[in-house]
């Protein structure tokens, strides 16, 4: 069974970040919710960011669970 997150997990830059022992969720929280907001010509509204983040949160929790299951089997 494949989840949309499989594509992300096989990305080498994600692996690098994991090796650097960064929490994926913390990273997303910083990049999506914080940082200086400059009104470029195209920007994502704050309301949208909350929705994306909640979606990611749910997705990541399920990935964590899946990883634990895989570890136990392995």
């Amino acid at each position: 069974m494949s989840s949309p997150f499989d594509q992300v997990l096989i990305q080498s830059d994600v692996e690098q970040l994991e090796q650097a022992d960064l929490s994926l969720l913390e990273t997303l929280d910083h990049v999506l919710n914080r940082g200086l907001v400059i009104a470029g010509e195209i920007t994502i509204s704050v309301a949208d960011i909350d929705l994306i983040f909640l979606g990611l949160n749910v997705l990541l929790s399920s990935v964590e669970t899946a990883n634990e299951v895989i570890k136990k089997r392995g």
């Binding site: 949309p4 997150f5 594509q7 992300v8 990305q11 830059d13 994600v14 690098q16 970040l17 994926l24 990273t27 997303l28 910083h30 990049v31 999506l32 994502i44 949208d48 929705l51 994306i52 979606g55 990611l56 997705l59 990541l60």
Partner: peptide, 16 residues
């Protein structure tokens, strides 16, 4: 925006 994997991958590169 409705595709978390699209965003996650790019947010990671932004952070790196």
């Amino acid at each position: 925006l409705s595709d978390p994997s699209w965003i996650a991958e790019r947010a990671m590169r932004h952070e790196t």
